[in-house]
Nucleic acid binder design. Structure first.
Length: 492
RNA sequence: CGGGGUGUAGCGUAGCCCGGUAUCGCGUCUGGUUUGGGACCAGAAGGUCGUCAGUUCGAAUCUGGCCACCCCGACCA
């Protein structure tokens, strides 16, 4: 199946964008680099939000909301962070328009309404949140603060692609404050586990947990951790990151607390986020030539029912026969769509729901009414079978479980088949230009080597895996000693 | 910001070199036949040809400015 997908990078990119549009998930907006998320795409995001929100709350976090605008002076307080984002910030400089005297009916920016201080549209919220935390924290009794925010952020990217990189995107960002280094580090890794759990159990996407190299880490962080997934074209996708901020932001925003022993110290911080990019990952990890394949746990529609009828009378008969089944499916917590439109033929509907990745489709026609059966088709394998109406709900629930498991197993096998250990630079380049995928290789740990490899091959160190076998070797580039393999790939 | 390209109906396009109010497909609408895998036939509607200016009797077509978008670089924790 994956073989049928376009392999050349540009073909795959085109295939991906076409799919996003055909599946009715999103489209480019008239606003530069921005995206309109259509109802079906947004429904997937809502499923993701629900699952993640519950996981955050189960680990003691609460939601809050902070302003979209960050005064420039506040933004620049943490220098590394400000520098890292400076080149992609949208900035508000005026607060008013007025009629343009030289062009009747047109508006112009009112030069008299220039802001004294420019406002940066948040590319991330550390600055505004830490400047707020300063007011909230005095004592160890005020800690920890475990807050998550669902928001939009703006990063003025040069080149954008639906879901994967857009000028404005939706995400959640967690920002926590702790009394001890240990507690903040634990939080950083706990959320990394939450993200991995979500990717594997909801998205059916196996991920590698690891630490970013210094060259790839978040500006302002002491350590950045990530989960990396592998897409069907052999490129890696960073699916989520968590950052141990040390005391960097506390120092920048002067957030101190009095500890139990009476000593004054800076607060320890973390931040972490995942975005609508995950929807892109979901598509690229599972889709085939017929369209999206959604894991049941994130599918807005679990089961679509398509009646096959010739006349209105026949539709009425089918509808009344299927109604009890719909009631039972919904009672079992499933999202069911009964598509009784008489404006489209069944074949058209089949194709459309396949394109949209609906996991299970039921077709029911006169033949089934006579036999007391339903035709059930599963999206992942495209198998069709006829089952009795009695017990259909259990059969479908079981099928959804199987689809969820099968998608994960399939993606895991794909990743295993496309992860290669290499020991020489020649082999490294050959694999990247051939089957691509993840490449495990020894690295001398220097930023210089990392930069050289990136420059020459476009491959980056995705992460230093948290789980790895200690193994002495020598760097594929410099030949210097290395204590373990790191994960390389070309990435989105 | 450098290099290349494109702007024509809701979408995708032909026409441009060689000037005469615009082609085809998808979609939409109407009528009929269809309906267990993206239906067919007949008819219809839909256009400031990105924008502003210039050349010309006449500009989608030629010239210049501007705008927007796409691709390749640079950039993308």
């Amino acid at each position: 199946m994956a073989k049928q997908l376009p392999t050349r990078a540009e073909d795959y990119a085109q295939w991906y964008v076409d799919l996003v549009k055909k599946a009715d998930l999103a489209e480019n907006s008239d606003v530069r680099g921005c995206m309109v998320i259509k109802p079906y795409g947004y429904a997937i995001w809502e499923k993701m939000q629900q699952a993640l929100d519950k996981m955050f709350k189960d680990t003691g976090h609460v939601n809050a909301y902070f302003p979209l605008f960050v005064p420039k002076s506040m933004f620049e307080a943490e220098e590394k962070n400000a520098e890292g984002f400076a080149k992609e910030c949208a900035v508000v400089t005026h607060y008013r328009l007025k009629n343009d005297p030289s062009r009747p009916g047109k508006l112009m920016v009112d030069p008299d309404a220039k802001l004294e201080e420019e406002l940066v549209v948040r590319p991330t919220s550390e600055a505004i949140i830490w400047s707020t935390y300063k007011k909230w924290i005095q004592s160890y009794r005020d800690l920890p603060i475990l807050i998550n925010q669902w928001a939009n952020v703006v990063r003025w990217e040069m080149r954008t692609r639906l879901f994967l990189r857009t000028a404005e995107f939706l995400w959640q960002e967690g920002h926590t404050a702790h009394a001890t280094r240990q507690e903040a580090e634990t939080e950083t890794l706990r959320i990394l586990d939450v993200y991995a759990d979500f990717a594997e159990n909801f998205m059916a996407l196996p991920v590698i947990k690891g630490k970013k190299s210094d060259g790839e880490k978040f500006p302002g962080a002491v350590d950045t951790y990530c989960i990396e997934g592998l897409m069907q074209d052999g490129k890696a996708l960073q699916c989520g990151t968590t950052h141990f901020l040390g005391q960097n932001f506390a120092e920048a925003f002067d957030v101190k607390f009095t500890a139990k022993d009476g000593k004054l110290d800076y607060v320890w911080g973390t931040s972490w986020g995942v975005s609508t990019r995950l929807i892109g990952g979901l598509i690229m990890a599972h889709a085939d030539d017929d369209g999206l394949i959604l894991p049941p746990k994130l599918a807005p529609i679990h089961v679509v029912i398509v009646p096959i009828f010739r006349s209105e009378e026949e539709l009425t008969r089918i509808s009344s026969a299927i109604e009890p089944v719909i009631v039972l499916l919904r009672a079992a917590g499933l999202s069911v769509k009964y598509d009784n439109r008489d404006t489209q033929k069944p074949g058209f509907k089949f194709a459309q729901y396949e394109m949209q990745g609906v996991p299970v489709r039921i077709a029911v026609g006169p033949r089934d009414l006579d036999n007391g059966t339903l035709e059930v088709a599963r999206r992942d394998t495209k198998e069709k079978k006829v089952i009795p109406v009695d017990g259909a709900v259990q059969a479908i629930e079981q099928m959804l479980d199987e689809i969820q498991k099968n998608l994960y197993a399939r993606a895991l096998k794909f990743r295993e088949d496309n992860t290669t250990k290499v020991d020489t630079y020649e082999e490294f380049k050959r694999v990247l230009d051939g089957e691509a995928g993840f490449v495990l290789a020894h690295w001398d740990g220097t930023a210089a080597t990392e930069a050289k490899i990136k420059e020459e091959t476009k491959a980056t160190i995705r992460c230093i895996p948290l789980v790895s076998v200690a193994e002495d070797g020598s760097c594929i580039y410099s030949g210097k000693p290395s204590a373990g393999r790191v994960l390389f790939a070309r990435a989105y």
